[in-house]
């Protein structure tokens, strides 16, 4: 009797974002990295009204909603900007990947994927062809920074997961 999913719609913006929601780790936190990217639709156009949620799998020292406490936490949220871009600052977990959920108008249920920060031996990566595997690998982009785009549909479509 699971409750069905419905789209997040276009108007979540005054409700779900919270202060510094994208900053799982404060600026200057030792070991923190930045991940930036864009969400693109089947025409290659940016999705300006998506909401991304990241979960590192490790709760950390401060609460998921708390951005005043010291230390990092494992959960963050970021609404995309007009150009479809998002960003997170976080401490990479022990596992080689981050769990990512994308909600948007036009998505009746979220898509979920993983952001791999390193191309390491891994059952999921190992099960994919090179093109699919490439969609899950974040690209190093300068010091302590990565890029990761989400392509919802079409060429280079991100490999999405179902649990």
């Amino acid at each position: 009797m699971t409750t069905p999913s419905q789209t997040v719609g276009p108007f979540y913006g005054f409700a779900l974002p919270y202060a510094a929601d994208w900053e799982l780790a404060p600026e200057g936190h030792p070991g923190a990295v930045t991940i930036t990217g864009r969400v693109l639709d089947g025409a290659g156009d940016p999705v300006p009204d998506a909401l991304l949620e990241v979960w590192t799998g490790e709760a950390g020292a401060r609460g998921a909603l708390d951005r005043a406490g010291t230390g990092a936490c494992g959960f963050g949220r970021c609404g995309t900007a007009a150009d479809g871009s998002y960003r997170f600052r976080l401490v990479p977990p022990t596992r080689p990947y981050l769990a990512l959920l994308v909600f948007a108008r036009g998505l009746l249920k979220p898509v979920r994927t993983r952001v791999y920060l390193a191309d390491v031996p891994d059952p999921l990566l190992g099960s994919l062809d090179p093109a699919g595997r490439a969609t899950l690998l974040a690209r190093p982009d300068g010091q302590d920074a990565y890029r990761f785009d989400v392509r919802l549909q079409g060429e280079g479509e991100t490999v999405f997961l179902e649990f």
């Binding site: 108008r105 036009g106 998505l107 898509v111 099960s127 919802l152 999405f160 997961l161």
Partner: peptide
Amino acid sequence: YASTVLRAPSRPPLPMK
């Protein structure tokens, strides 16, 4: 629901069991 047309993934999600 017209907005699904360009946003729906074309491949089914990969089962993670």
